[in-house]
Design a protein around this nucleic acid. Sequence first.
DNA 1: TAAGTGAGTTCTAAATCGGAACCCTTGGTT
DNA 2: AACCAAGGGTTCCGATTTAGAACTCACTTA
Lengths: 155, 155
Amino acid sequence: MGVMRWNDLKEESCPVARGLSVIGDRWTMMVLRDCFQGIRRFDDFQKRLGITRHVLADRLRKLEEDGVLERRLYQDRPPRHEYRLTEKGLALLPILVTLIQWANTWEPHPEQDDKILRDRETGAHVEPLVVDSETRQPLTHRTLRRIESSAAPKA
Amino acid sequence: MGVMRWNDLKEESCPVARGLSVIGDRWTMMVLRDCFQGIRRFDDFQKRLGITRHVLADRLRKLEEDGVLERRLYQDRPPRHEYRLTEKGLALLPILVTLIQWANTWEPHPEQDDKILRDRETGAHVEPLVVDSETRQPLTHRTLRRIESSAAPKA
DNA sequence: TAAGTGAGTTCTAAATCGGAACCCTTGGTT
DNA sequence: AACCAAGGGTTCCGATTTAGAACTCACTTA
């Protein structure tokens, strides 16, 4: 298989590798979390995250290249843009939601309240669960067969 | 809010930050992917991932510290251990599964087959979907209210 | 005795990151 | 005109982290 360089990940046949080539970076998911909280501007990301401006600019550029964020002009003089989630970016929400569920269960915060997920209409508290879209049976390590690549073994 | 150093993330009140303090690293999720494929030994991880031995040792140590992997002796002379997922680690599968689903949809591989998720019993092909555990309604950006911290605003 | 296995550790050079300062355009103040 | 602030970056330098390769240690097998 040879050595795997991080930037080759996009061409890997493994979807985990391809997914991580987009969101596998330390700060990228934090940026996306802020996006889902409605943040759109460079300085707002920077202030909330405490990330260096240099790294932030780089991550926003990559997310735009990957089609997760869209950079759109919101005023002309001087030109200013904001970053917005595309459909592809919005489709990442289930991952974030699943991560929140895991962290609230297995890394609970000592005393502070946690982010709470609510239904948009009713405001009811929701609890994420990953199921099969057809049978609606929960998918866990007990119900799933070991993950395998369907690609032919290398020898 | 001050600057956020990566290692302070564990004490953040945001579950996304706390989750990422465990699995937010480039290689960590790749290691976990291999774990879910049944890999348990140092050299096997190393050969499959093409990660440097140094970094691999570091990531395995961190995952053990975080209670995601367990290092257990499987022979005495010389002492050898293998790395196994704990309950906490097994609970990460839904995240991996959701990531696979996203990547297969939005970053499809040109020609090669992808990893396929199957039911352990029937072998039927399953398709992950994140729903509310009570109502079984899908959770997406259309059905969820914007994520908010329930912590009091800082001023 | 030599070679091999498994699990690391050590070393050096290259890449990335953090922190801070600087730049540019435009609008508003004094 | 001179100064300042907002917004969105870029540049520079020193500190970390990573990649790549070699080396170690404790056995086991040929």
